[in-house]
């Protein structure tokens, strides 16, 4: 039997994976590795991965055959910054959930975008704290029932991708795990865009969210994502009409010089001056 073309990127000795049936993490992992494959990388030696705590953080660690730093909850972005500053030649990619990236680590997200730090952050937004049993997250829709909003969520969800775009990122997009082909193309583009790249992938957590929201199966959730998403260009025409829909597409794409490049430019200028 021929080997699957993506197996070369995976640590097969740690399989089977640990994600629940119906979890979107596998789709995100698949799309990422397909993007890498289509870009022509033979292995992941030009990459470094960084992730915090939560289900999505387990996508690279331990499943990717690569260097990966599985750090504290919320701190994947500053750790990735440390790696990128010392090894600018590596493609540094952060995987994390919505709680990890936009909740506890939200401040780092904002500042990485502001600096236009040359890393790619893939935020797998399953709208809930899945690993801890389905508590309300900063991304949970208004009114949703979770284990810590037994009477319905009375907070509004953060529009993470729009916030990151406003904060100064070079590349920002939002997709769902239904939009696999578009997500692959988006990851390819993000990996080759200078500056901070952020892709929000709205995902499915059937175990801790979907079944409590009345979905009968994970597949039904994916159909719901398809039917409830709308191209961002369409959404912008009438946001009120499309309230509650998921705007998908590219939100920002303006490659600009990033932070790490500026740091090293300064260092090289100083050393040239002194020698």
């Amino acid at each position: 039997m021929a080997e699957h073309p993506l197996h070369k990127y995976l640590r097969m000795e740690v399989m089977p994976h640990v994600f629940c049936p119906g979890c979107g993490a596998g789709i995100v992992a698949n799309c990422f590795l397909r993007a890498v494959y289509e870009l022509g990388y033979e292995d992941l030696s030009k990459f470094a991965f960084c992730s915090g705590i939560g289900c999505a953080a387990w996508i690279p660690s331990p499943f990717f055959k690569a260097d990966s730093l599985h750090i504290m909850h919320g701190r994947s972005i500053p750790a990735a910054m440390g790696i990128k500053l010392m090894k600018p030649e590596l493609k540094v990619v952060v995987f994390g959930g919505d709680g990890d990236i936009a909740g506890i680590g939200g401040n780092h997200l904002l500042h990485a975008a502001r600096r236009n730090l040359e890393i790619l952050v893939i935020m797998v937004n399953n709208m809930v704290y899945g690993m801890t049993g389905g508590q309300v997250a900063p991304t949970t829709p208004f009114g949703a029932y979770t284990t810590t909003t037994p009477y319905g969520n009375i907070e509004y969800p953060i529009k993470a991708a729009e916030v990151v775009a406003t904060a100064g990122a070079s590349y920002v997009a939002r997709w769902t795990v239904y939009h696999t082909r578009r997500l692959i193309n988006s990851i390819k583009k993000a990996l080759n865009t200078e500056g901070f790249s952020f892709i929000e992938v709205v995902s499915t957590c059937f175990t801790s969210y979907g079944r409590r929201m009345g979905f009968k199966s994970p597949a039904e959730m994916i159909v719901w994502l398809k039917e409830n998403s709308i191209p961002i260009s369409e959404y912008k025409k009438n946001p009120e009409k499309y309230a509650g829909k998921i705007p998908v597409g590219e939100i920002e794409c303006t490659p600009r010089e990033g932070y790490v490049k500026r740091v090293w430019k300064m260092i090289h200028e100083l050393s040239a001056k002194s020698s």
């Binding site: 750090i71 010392m86 780092h108 904002l110 100083l270």
Partner: peptide, 29 residues
């Protein structure tokens, strides 16, 4: 630090500072 080829960065808080230090250490610093 920049004079001697090193990287200085002022982070957004101390959580970020220690995390960046850990990341940099694994990148050989």
């Amino acid at each position: 630090l920049p004079e001697v080829g090193g990287v200085f960065v002022q982070m957004e808080d101390e959580l970020a500072s220690i995390s960046a230090v850990i990341g940099a250490s694994w990148a050989g610093a």
